[in-house]
Nucleic acid binder design. Structure first.
Length: 432
DNA sequence: GGGACATAG
DNA sequence: GATTCTATGTCCC
């Protein structure tokens, strides 16, 4: 089926943008090239992306910005707030471009895709290089490409490409000398493999499995009994047996969460009422965009995990009378849910609204007795359209329609312009 | 069915 | 003084 010398083989390429958020910032601000740059999470809380130069300074993902800020002047570290409008738009452009190389692609995350390819190993290496060149030329982003018989091995050789400059960003399992592959596998800790993180790493170490090579040599059936079927699949995929299929269909969501930390704690039931109204409407907008409706809503709030004085995690679940995407109903439900469990004086650091038991909008037509006038008018989609065009504070129902931004709202003090999605923020090109 | 746990990006 | 957000899968009761 595979592996005839000189013949065609079925392979999967993992294409991954290097330091995606930072690279997006660099597309429109080339002065960031060669410098240590980090992009921060919502509320400018912690680091979520780092340039290589920032990694060299010893900065880790998850490092809180308030600890780095003090040193930033001295180290030359540059920071940006998250600009998801920009990253989302550049991501779609990358995915569209990758779709030209194969009609079987799995968009795995905002900056990664698995691309199914067929050809001789030599040809596929060329295709990998073409992909890298095309993304650089058309979008201005740097990618690495790993090509292998399984998704797990594609992830592995992608990592090899990232760490070995001599490979110029592209690595194929088939053309990598076997002794070279074995050497790397016997040196990289087992947590370097896709699906194995800290907890599993510790348990594996306790059994004498320290490297990827150790795991590859383990008995998949015995390991399934000790761990789970996921572990068995990982081991088989390390041995070149595909068992994690390419998911080319965009999966319909099973749940939808809108949750945010506050820039300033919310300490009163009245303010929490506003929060719940706004979050429920944001959730309703996403539901409408996904053409789905929800049957169950859970609302939750919580104090900071770092707060040693207060620890409170109220939550409540509401069974909606019928599946709905109506922001009016969802807002009422959310506001009512936590009404009696928020205690004035407790500093809540975050809150959220979760919608579950999702179904396609209109799949089970409602009995007229349940339908409300606003539901038929598709208020959710309307709210979303207005917010897309005029901003999230331009419209809102009830207490979400406040004229002023709330003091607990998100902090994004260092955000670059939304160059590609806002007419007012287009980049200016000067020719002289 | 639901909670705990683990993982990913 | 300050530490993101979203989604999924498996196990086990």
């Amino acid at each position: 089926m595979q592996g005839h010398p000189g013949g065609k083989v079925d392979r999967v390429a993992l294409v991954d943008v290097n330091s995606f958020y930072v690279s997006c910032e660099r597309v429109f601000d080339p002065s960031l090239e060669g410098k240590p740059v980090v992009v921060l999470s919502n509320n400018d809380g912690c680091v979520v992306a780092r340039s290589n130069e920032a990694k060299a300074l010893g900065i880790d993902n998850g490092d809180p910005w308030f600890k780095l800020a003090a040193d930033a002047k001295r180290t030359g570290l540059i920071h940006r707030s998250s600009n998801y409008e920009l990253y989302g738009d550049l991501s779609s452009r990358v995915m569209e471009l990758l779709g030209r190389f194969s009609y079987l692609i799995e968009v795995y995350s905002i900056d990664e895709a698995f691309v199914s390819l067929r050809g001789t190993p030599e040809d596929l290496l060329k295709v990998g290089r073409e992909i890298k060149a095309a993304v650089a030329k058309n979008i201005g982003l740097p990618v690495c490409v790993g090509i292998a018989p399984t998704k797990t091995l594609a992830k592995f050789v992608n990592r090899v490409a990232k760490q070995n400059p001599a490979l110029e960003g592209v690595c194929s399992w088939d053309t990598l000398p076997p002794d070279h592959a074995e050497t790397i596998m016997s040196r990289v800790p087992v947590t370097g493999i896709w699906g194995i993180a800290g907890r599993l790493g510790k348990k594996l170490n306790a059994m004498g499995i320290f490297t990827i090579a150790d795991l590859k040599a383990a008995d998949p059936v015995a390991m399934r009994k000790k761990f789970s079927v996921l572990m068995q699949r990982t081991i088989m995929e390390l041995n070149g047996i595909p068992c994690i299929p390419l998911e080319t269909e965009i999966a319909t969501k099973q749940q939808l969460i809108f949750s945010r930390s506050f820039s300033t704690p919310v300490t009163t039931a009245s303010r929490m009422h506003e929060v719940m109204a706004i979050y429920a409407q944001q959730a309703a907008i996403r539901l409408a965009k996904d053409h789905q409706q929800a049957k169950i809503m859970s609302c939750f709030a919580g104090t900071s995990y770092f707060n040693e004085k207060f620890s409170s995690f109220p939550s409540a679940t509401v069974n909606l009378a019928a599946p709905t995407a109506d922001p009016v109903l969802l807002t009422k439900a959310a506001v009512g849910a936590l009404e009696h469990s928020i205690v004035d004086g407790i500093p809540y650091a975050r809150a959220g609204v979760m919608l579950t038991d999702l179904s396609p909008a209109g799949a089970a037509p409602q009995l007229p007795v349940f339908a409300t006038a606003h539901e038929e008018k598709h208020i959710g989609a309307l709210l979303g359209d207005v917010m897309d065009r005029f901003g999230v504070s331009s419209i809102g129902l009830g207490r979400a329609g406040m004229a002023e931004a709330p003091d607990w709202g998100m902090k994004r003090k260092a955000m670059s312009p939304r160059y590609t999605t806002e007419w007012d923020e287009l980049p200016l090109v000067k020719a002289s």
